[in-house]
Nucleic acid binder design. Sequence first.
DNA 1: CCAATTGTTCAATAACTTTTGAACTAAGGA
DNA 2: TCCTTAGTTCAAAAGTTATTGAACAATTGG
Lengths: 118, 118
Amino acid sequence: MTLPHPNTDQISLPIVLGVLGDPTRLAIVRYLASKQGVPLNCSQFLDFGSKTNLSYHLAKLREAGVTRAEVVGTNRMITLRRADLDARFPGLLDSVIAAAGDDPALPAVGGHDIEIHA
Amino acid sequence: MTLPHPNTDQISLPIVLGVLGDPTRLAIVRYLASKQGVPLNCSQFLDFGSKTNLSYHLAKLREAGVTRAEVVGTNRMITLRRADLDARFPGLLDSVIAAAGDDPALPAVGGHDIEIHA
DNA sequence: CCAATTGTTCAATAACTTTTGAACTAAGGA
DNA sequence: TCCTTAGTTCAAAAGTTATTGAACAATTGG
């Protein structure tokens, strides 16, 4: 029950750029980045679209190699493939996330920041 | 006879990413970057598509704010809006161009490098 | 003026993308 | 086992994008 993901060296630049060119998917990526590697399940993205629609967009992100989805019981835990993307396209993800953060035309990322407990 | 271009602050991240997500347009951008700011006319991109098709893709790039097109006689001289893109989305263009350069799945940029004359 | 060069516009078509609801599967808990 | 939760799949509809050839406009050079 593992889902198909491209290997790091199979990640394609035009496909990644095309996938990030959709506002819904860009919002998902920003939200994942704001969670600093903590896996999220699909329901936590419901602000960005309907359940079916998220299934579609999350599949696109996964197939492009931008996210990883791990099946845990009845959940799919989603993470950003930050290390893989950095290895393949150094600096790209950071500049996209920074650019999205500065763009007032894009909605602010909702939810709460991760709390660091002592 | 000047063509419409977005202002720097009107350049939208998802639109830029979507526009760069097309292999033909990515090839055009790489080629422009390899020319280090020297303006090129449309005919110099004929390797990447037919005349009509290039007209379409170059309009997309211009409307997204990725390139600038200046009418000079019967030519449109095209340049990358490097400074504007760097101001709006720091590091983005450089990482895209670097990533494209490293990707063996993408065709190598043709033509000749700029010669620096003493 | 005439012809060549450069590039656009238009209409048609094909292909792909996004979105939706209904039906479905798979796992977990009572 | 039955119900709930989580998410997928399917088919349809709507919208968008890419590609093409034919016709067009504008400028330059002879």
